[in-house]
Amino acid sequence: MSALQDTLHEHQASFWANNIQNIQVMAHNSDGACIDRFLRLFGRMGSLNDVILDAPDTTRERFQKQLARAYDLALKLK
């Protein structure tokens, strides 16, 4: 999650980076609602899935892998 947040911050996607940071704080505080909150960032128009970084292809690919991994882990924890 930290890598995902860092990538978002580096590429001026502060809204999403701040959402991830808030979810990380919830997780750190053992708030199980963090998983549902994270999963709600996906799946509708204008969601985290729709973020396209203004970055080289390798960075965009890395971001998509980070995003997919975080999503898969959240599903497993749910």
Score class of each variant (00 low, 15 high):
Gln64Lys: 15
Asn49Gly: 10
Asp31Glu: 11
Met45Leu: 08
Met1Lys: 05
Ala74His: 04
Ile35His: 06
Arg62Asn: 12
Thr7Val: 11
Asp31Lys: 12
Lys65Tyr: 07
His28Leu: 13
Leu73Met: 09
Ser14Leu: 14
His28Ile: 09
Gln5Tyr: 01
Gln64Gly: 12
Asn22Phe: 06
Tyr71Gln: 07
Val51Ala: 02
Arg69Cys: 13
Ile35Gln: 07
Ala68Pro: 01
Lys78Glu: 08
Arg69Phe: 12
Thr7Cys: 14
Asp6Ile: 03
Asn29Lys: 15
Asp57Gly: 09
Pro56Thr: 06
Phe38Lys: 01
Ala13Leu: 12
Ala3Asn: 13
Thr58Trp: 07
Leu48Thr: 01
Asp6Tyr: 04
Leu41Val: 03
Leu48Pro: 00
Leu53Lys: 04
Asn29His: 11
Arg60Cys: 15
Asp72Asn: 12
Met1Trp: 05
Leu48His: 02
Asp57Trp: 06
Tyr71Thr: 03
Ile52His: 11
Gly43Tyr: 00
Gln12Gly: 07
Lys76Gln: 07
Thr7Phe: 01
Arg37Ser: 08
Gln12Pro: 00
Leu48Arg: 00
Thr59Ala: 15
Leu73Trp: 08
Ala55Ser: 07
Leu77Ile: 02
Glu10Arg: 12
His9Trp: 14
Lys65Ser: 09
His28Met: 12
Asp36Phe: 09
Arg62Trp: 08
Asp57Leu: 13
Asp57Gln: 12
Asp31Val: 06
Arg37Pro: 00
Asn22His: 10
Ile20Leu: 01
Glu61Lys: 15
Arg37Val: 07
Ala27Glu: 12
Leu75Cys: 09
Arg60Val: 09
Leu41Pro: 00
Met26Thr: 01
His28Asn: 14
Ile52Gln: 14
Gln66Pro: 05
Thr59Gln: 15
Leu48Cys: 03
Ser2Ala: 14
Leu53Thr: 05
Ile52Asn: 15
Leu39Val: 03
Phe63Val: 00
Leu39Cys: 02
Lys78Ser: 11
Lys65Pro: 01
Leu41Arg: 00
Thr7Gly: 01
Glu61His: 13
Leu73His: 10
His9Pro: 06
Asn22Glu: 07
Glu10Ser: 13
Arg62Glu: 14
Met1Leu: 11
Gln5Ala: 06
Ala33Tyr: 02
Ala27Gln: 10
His11Leu: 07
Arg44Ser: 12
Arg60Gln: 15
Asn22Lys: 08
Trp16Gln: 02
Ser30His: 11
His11Phe: 12
Phe42Glu: 06
Ile35Trp: 13
Phe38Cys: 03
Leu67Pro: 00
Asn49Arg: 05
Asp50Tyr: 03
Arg69Val: 12
Phe63Gly: 00
Gly32Arg: 06
Leu75Ala: 04
Trp16Arg: 02
Ala17Arg: 02
Gln24Val: 08
Met26Asn: 03
Leu4Trp: 05
Val51Pro: 00
Asn49Phe: 02
Phe38His: 02
Phe63Ile: 01
Asn49Met: 06
Arg60Thr: 10
Ala74Cys: 08
Ala13Glu: 15
Met45Thr: 10
Arg62Asp: 13
Glu61Thr: 11
Asp31Met: 06
Lys65Gly: 05
Leu39Trp: 01
His9Val: 11
Val51Leu: 05
